[in-house]
Simulated scan of single mutants.
Amino acid sequence: MNDIATTRADLFAQGQIRLAELSVFNWGSFHGLHTASIDSDGTLVTGDNGAGKSTFIDGLMALLLPAGKATFNVAAAQGDRSDRSLLSYMRGSFGSAHDGSSTRVKSKREKGVVTGLRALYQCED
């Protein structure tokens, strides 16, 4: 039986550009700037329900896909159409309120908002 030792160099081509950081600013439930480092060997995203795991990943999807093509919060939608949009993430929408005559979406940020998304890619050499 052959022992095959797989090294990192075997898995990834030299000079490969990889995601190193993901930052969100006023995105979904995140207020202000939040940055996550992405390990070049792999990163596991874990946390309690409602902690923002999908919100953070949806920020990356908004950057990677053409405008209007991203489908957000797919895990929670379970195959149905998502209840989230680019605008709902920018506003920080989190629920709805009924005032007796109509239902209004509750949001953390109203009126004009500034939202930022950043993906930092680096080459190891």
Rank of each mutant, 00 (worst) to 15 (best):
A67E: 14
D80C: 07
V45I: 15
L64M: 13
T55F: 06
A76N: 08
S37Q: 12
T46F: 15
A67W: 04
G50D: 14
I57C: 06
K69N: 07
R81K: 15
Q78I: 05
T46R: 07
A70Y: 06
R84I: 05
L44V: 11
L64T: 11
M90Y: 03
A62L: 15
G50I: 08
Y89H: 04
L64E: 07
V45K: 02
L65A: 12
I38E: 01
F72Q: 04
S40W: 11
G47F: 10
V45A: 08
K69H: 12
V45P: 00
M61P: 00
G47T: 11
G47N: 10
T55H: 10
A77G: 09
V45S: 03
S37P: 02
A76H: 10
G68H: 11
R81N: 04
A62H: 09
D58F: 05
G42E: 09
R84V: 05
D39K: 10
R81W: 06
D41K: 12
K53Q: 12
N73H: 14
A70S: 13
T43I: 05
M90D: 00
D39T: 02
L64K: 04
S37E: 14
D80W: 14
L65F: 05
I38T: 02
G68E: 06
N73R: 15
G92P: 03
R81E: 15
M90A: 15
S54I: 03
T43S: 14
V74A: 15
T43D: 04
T55M: 05
P66E: 09
T43N: 08
R84P: 00
D80E: 15
G79K: 12
S82Y: 06
S37A: 12
V45E: 01
D39R: 04
G68L: 07
S54Q: 07
Y89N: 03
R84C: 03
T43K: 04
D41S: 13
I57Y: 01
A75F: 10
A77E: 08
A75E: 11
Y89M: 09
G79A: 09
F56S: 00
F72G: 02
V45G: 02
G42S: 03
T55I: 06
F72A: 01
T71F: 05
S82V: 02
V45Q: 02
D58A: 08
S82E: 07
I57K: 00
A62T: 01
G92S: 05
L60H: 07
G50T: 05
T55C: 14
A62M: 12
D41P: 00
A51P: 00
A62F: 01
Q78F: 14
N73D: 15
V45Y: 09
A77F: 10
F72L: 14
A67K: 11
S85M: 10
I38K: 01
L44E: 01
T55Y: 08
S88R: 14
G50L: 10
G79P: 13
A70M: 05
S40H: 13
T46C: 13
L87M: 14
S88Y: 06
I38W: 03
L86M: 05
L86V: 02
F72H: 01
N49V: 12
K69L: 12
A67G: 06
L86R: 11
S88V: 04
